[in-house]
């Protein structure tokens, strides 16, 4: 009698189902079945990461400050250029430049992959209703799953610590906005423009390259910006699976309860985020050709 009543008060334990097991098995199966492929992946990514990282280290520190100053001055104005360059200098003064280069490498590579994969996916979504139906819930899931969750399968799949699973996890976490904004950018192209294109006998490809992509360019650039910001957020977390960078400094500070070190490293990441955000937003605005000039 008492037992029966208890069923209504607390959820009965023996009714829970186990999906953790099957997921483990699935990831293991993926790892085993595509081992060669995945190993090739690791080699390729390591190569790519090394190339970017070596290049970033090869360029002397002051060149970054000068280039940033010029770029921001062209995109905005003198005062903004001054502020952003100072922020970059501050990162260096705080002693995080090397860490920032490691972090930036992971960010750049994952944004690059996001672009290479996200752009065609977004286009596909805009052009094929079936793809739209399938991909929309997947994108929702990718964005709402806690970011930590990606770390483990990335680790398991690639059978290695450090940068490669970090890039993959960052890519999964960061790619949705780019796909979504590419899709939106193309979908929101003024109906009358698309129709005009159609009425002159454009092929589907001509429509895409000559009308839809140019019209969607600024929205896509905003997508790249958002993806980059997501990557910055994620790259800190990837320090948990051994990726080098400023994130690792934050992690160490947390583990050792060093408040000062934690904030110092935190500021470096904030500065990096601000610099990247301003830079990309400026570019996005420059690309918005439709907004140029005033109405007569």
């Amino acid at each position: 009698m008492f037992k029966l009543l208890n069923v209504f008060l607390t959820f009965p334990d023996d009714l829970t189902i186990d999906i953790a097991g099957p997921i483990d098995t699935f990831i293991d199966w993926l790892g085993d079945t595509f081992r060669v492929f995945l190993d090739g992946f690791v080699v390729f990514f390591t190569f790519l990461l090394d190339a970017v990282q070596n290049f970033l280290f090869f360029v002397p520190w002051w060149v970054y400050i000068v280039l940033l100053f010029i770029a921001v001055y062209k995109l905005y104005r003198l005062s903004t250029a001054f502020v952003l360059s100072t922020l970059l200098l501050l990162i260096m003064l705080l002693g995080f430049w090397d860490g920032t280069v490691y972090t930036l490498t992971i960010i750049l590579v994952s944004v690059l992959i996001s672009f290479v994969i996200g752009l065609p996916t977004g286009i596909l979504m805009a052009k094929a209703p079936t793809a739209e139906k399938i991909l929309k819930p997947i994108l929702d899931m990718m964005q709402t799953l806690p970011s930590f969750v990606y770390l483990i399968p990335a680790l398991m799949l690639f059978n290695t610590f450090g940068r490669v699973p970090a890039v993959v996890a960052t890519f999964i976490y960061a790619v949705p906005p780019l796909i979504r904004l590419t899709y939106l950018g193309i979908k929101n192209v003024d109906e009358s423009i698309v129709e005009a294109g159609e009425s002159f006998g454009s092929t589907s490809m001509q429509m895409l390259y000559k009308i839809q992509l140019p019209q969607a360019l600024s929205t896509i650039a905003a997508g790249v910006n958002q993806t980059t910001m997501m990557a910055v957020a994620m790259v800190v977390i990837t320090s948990l699976i051994g990726a080098r960078g400023v994130g690792r400094d934050v992690l160490r500070a947390v583990q050792q309860l060093n408040v000062g070190d934690g904030f110092a490293a935190g500021f470096a990441i904030v500065f990096l985020a601000i610099i990247l955000d301003r830079l990309l937003q400026g570019i996005a605005q420059k690309l918005d050709m439709t907004a140029q000039g005033d109405e007569l």
């Binding site: 002159f200 006998g201 009308i211 050709m289």
Partner: peptide, 23 residues
């Protein structure tokens, strides 16, 4: 054939112009 027809034989002028604002 429809594409050729649209390319060669017929043109349209739209109420809201339908101009490519990026060109």
């Amino acid at each position: 054939e429809l594409r050729q027809y649209r390319r060669n034989d017929v043109s349209m002028v739209f109420q809201h112009f339908g101009l490519l604002s990026h060109r």
